[in-house]
Every structure is written in C-alpha cells, then in structure tokens.
C-alpha cells in the first residue's frame, strides 16, 4: 500500500479535485457533444464524493470518534439487509444530527460503498454515495432544530426519501438513454414513485422509532467518554 505522506501533495490533490469538477462538467458538455453524458456524470459524482472525503482527512480526528463513525457505518450497512423497509438513511441522518456533519457524510457515503459489496458495485455507486452522504450532511447542518423536535426530524426524513429518489432518478435517466432529457427524467420519476413513497415512509418510521433511543445512546457515549 502506497501512502501519500506529503501533506503538500495531498492538499494539491484536494485543490485539483475542486477545479476538476466544473471543468469535467464543461468539457464533457462541449467536447463529447452530448454523447458522453454517462461518463461525465459518473466522473462528476465521484469527484464530488472525493472532495468531501479530502476535507475530512485534513482534520485531526481522535481515534474514538473515528471508531464510532465506523460503528455507525457498519450499523447502517446491517440496516440495508432488512427486508422492504431500509433504515440506511435514518441511521446516516441520526449520525449527522448527533455526531456532526462530517460523520454524517461519511456514514452515508461509506454505507453505500460497503453495502454495494454485497449488492453489486457499478457506475451507480458514486451517485448513491453522494446522495446518502449529502442528505446526512444537511441533517448535520440542521442539527439543532432536528434534535429538539421529533416532528421536524420525521419531516426531514420524508423529504430526504424524496430527494434521494430524485437524485437517483437523474442517474437512471442518464444511464437508460445515454443522454439527459426532461421527458425521460419525468417518466423515471413517475415510474419510481412507489420506491419514493417506500423510502419516505421507511425513513419516517425508522426516525420516529429510533431517534430517541439512538440519540440517548449517542449522547450518553459522548458524555461518558468525552468524544
């Protein structure tokens, strides 16, 4: 395993990624004249995930925090094995709310990555990583109101179920037709409607049931060990 130890080189890579995202999008649009939508969209999605992860690596993270986040990742991966109703988003959102935005993003993104080792990796992995990651990240940004009111949290859960579906529909529209057009996207959104409802409902159910016990456990661990 080669490890990039040079901090300057790592920060260079980080800036490079930041510049690469818009340039890949623009280049893909002009150079490939619309035929390379799939490649462009997959590249942009993976680079966005990399950008978030780079930001995480710069911070000094205590090992306790590090292990706690991997515990949450493993728990949410286990959640994906549940039949029909999946608590993955709920676990990632709870992590975001109680352990911070970055922990949320990591939990969301990595649970997509790891569970796809069981369900099959593919070009859709970066999209799933981004979708789950960003939803948990936003939950972390709204931590204060979401911690206070369970109604708001459930509302956020329903909203994130819908948003997750909308983000993934972009991928399926691009992949199914090799290009992006609004009618095909809308058709995908409509055909995915049962899934969207299922996501939203399972998020609400799991957040309603798990928010309080999970929150108590995490707060207790934070207070007991000073994470």
């Amino acid at each position: 395993m080669i490890v990039i130890q040079n901090a300057r080189l790592r920060s260079f890579l980080r800036i490079l990624t930041l510049l690469l995202i818009p340039s890949v999008a623009v280049l893909g649009y002009f150079l490939l004249r619309g035929t390379g939508y799939v490649v462009t969209s997959v590249t942009v999605a993976s680079l966005s995930v990399v950008l978030f992860l780079c930001g995480f690596d710069r911070r000094k993270t205590g090992s306790r925090r590090l292990v706690l986040v991997s515990v949450m990742i493993a728990l949410s991966v286990l959640g994906r094995f549940f039949p029909l109703l999946k608590p993955v988003t709920a676990v990632a959102v709870i992590t975001g709310v109680y352990l911070g935005m970055e922990a949320g993003f990591l939990t969301g993104a990595f649970s997509a990555l790891i569970s796809n080792f069981y369900y099959g990796q593919g070009p859709w992995t970066p999209f799933q990583m981004f979708a789950w990651g960003i939803l948990a990240f936003l939950a972390g940004a709204l931590a204060r109101p979401l911690q206070k009111s369970r109604t708001l949290l459930c509302l956020y859960g329903a909203l994130s179920g819908i948003l997750y579906s909308l983000i993934m529909d972009i991928w399926s529209a691009v992949f199914a037709s090799g290009g992006f057009s609004l009618p095909i996207y809308l058709a995908k959104v409509v055909t995915a409607l049962p899934h969207t409802v299922l996501y939203a409902v399972s998020n609400v159910i799991f957040l309603f049931l798990m928010a309080k016990p999970f929150g108590e456990k995490l707060t207790r661990i934070k207070r007991k060990y000073g994470v």
């Binding site: 395993m1 490890v3 990039i4 992860l53 690596d57 993270t61 590090l66 990742i73 990595f110 790891i114």
Partner: peptide, 14 residues
C-alpha cells in the same frame, strides 16, 4: 489506501 490512510482504516474497520 494510497489516497487516505485514515479513510481506508475506517473502511476496513466498518
């Protein structure tokens, strides 16, 4: 693992 030792540790732990 080459890209980030910390993240790959987290990944392998999870």
């Amino acid at each position: 693992g080459a890209l980030s030792p910390k993240l790959s540790l987290m990944l392998s732990m999870a």
